[in-house]
């Protein structure tokens, strides 16, 4: 005699057919939403800390300045590189400036006599915090006409947008879990109605509520795990597909489409958590229904 076999014939239920598919769909959506949260997290944190891979200092020589532009730029580079948190500072050559403007002004439309501001590319140190306020003051004090393009304002807006997107994704995850719970409640109640006679017999011969609930719980766990594995597999395949497409886009400001170990851990834990939610929901639904029996 197989002790593990179900005394309530749940395997014959219609729910056995559609619950795994519904769970798979829910897990698919939840994993993709969570992946969005994980992917944005790194970039959002960096933006909130004002972190950028590169900063720009702009120098427009004042009309009455006595110092040559090259000397002024060289002095600025020395001053900037002396700042804590700066890895390197490099003035852009005129050809590079023209190359930056050509996409907007057209090839060859920039004459040699056009006065262009000089730009200095500042690379922050990876292992040291750069005080953007102090850098802006130092630049302005070192050379009249020089200023730091302070990215903090638009970085704050970008970080705020990223956090909003994360919040929306988190709400989607919660809604998906809520929908999964509601589905399991309904399918479990259907199962209780269909198998009412068998449950009554078990009840009358002395089965504890936990014994009957255990039947539904194990059944729901098996179906939940099956659906969660399917949904997770499809979601991972989708993520790899999106990752391949994202790799072809050159956009340094966008978050990198790659997961660290903790990210994969979070994604992998989600289907397991969903299966456990399905199991616990089935158990609680049955216990609640049985509590109404004499």
């Amino acid at each position: 005699m197989r002790r593990s076999s179900l005394t309530v014939p749940l395997r014959r239920d219609p729910s056995s057919r559609f619950l795994p598919w519904i769970t798979a769909f829910m897990v698919y959506l939840a994993v993709l939403s969570l992946a969005g949260i994980v992917l944005i997290e790194g970039a959002a944190s960096r933006w909130e800390q004002g972190g950028l891979d590169h900063l720009t200092v702009q120098y427009v020589p004042p009309p009455d300045t006595a110092i040559s532009t090259d000397d002024a730029v060289a002095e600025l580079v020395v001053r900037i590189e002396a700042m804590a948190g700066v890895a390197a500072a490099r003035p852009l050559a005129e050809a590079e400036l023209i190359a930056l403007l050509e996409p907007w002004l057209g090839d060859g439309s920039i004459s040699a006599g056009l006065p262009l501001p000089r730009l200095i590319d500042v690379e922050p140190a990876a292992d040291e915090t750069l005080d953007l306020g102090a850098l802006a003051v130092a630049v302005a004090e070192t050379m009249p006409g020089a200023r730091l393009d302070d990215p903090r304002d638009w970085l704050d807006e970008l970080a705020s947008l990223a956090r909003t997107v994360q919040a929306v994704a988190a709400v989607i995850v919660l809604l998906v879990v809520g929908a999964a719970v509601a589905t399991v409640v309904v399918t479990t109640q259907m199962g209780l109605a269909v198998h009412r006679e068998a449950i009554e017999v078990l009840h009358l011969i002395g089965a504890r509520d936990s014994y009957v609930a255990g039947q539904f719980e194990r059944h729901a766990l098996v179906l939940g795990l099956r659906g969660a594995a399917l949904g997770f597999g499809l979601a991972v395949a989708t993520l790899f597909g999106l990752g391949g497409a994202a790799a072809a886009i050159e956009a340094p400001l966008l978050p990198a489409f790659a997961f660290e170990a903790w990210g994969w851990g979070a994604l992998g834990a989600l289907p397991l958590a969903m299966a456990l939610v399905v199991m616990a929901t089935a158990r609680l639904t049955v216990l609640r229904a049985l509590a109404r029996m004499p």
């Binding site: 005699m1 076999s5 005394t7 017999v201 078990l202």
Partner: peptide
């Protein structure tokens, strides 16, 4: 009778022992 149709005669009779 209230026998469970999906169980064999032996499994039906065993139910009280099993739930215990």
């Amino acid at each position: 009778y209230r026998l469970l149709d999906h169980l064999t005669a032996l499994e039906n009779v065993a139910l009280p022992l099993r739930v215990a």
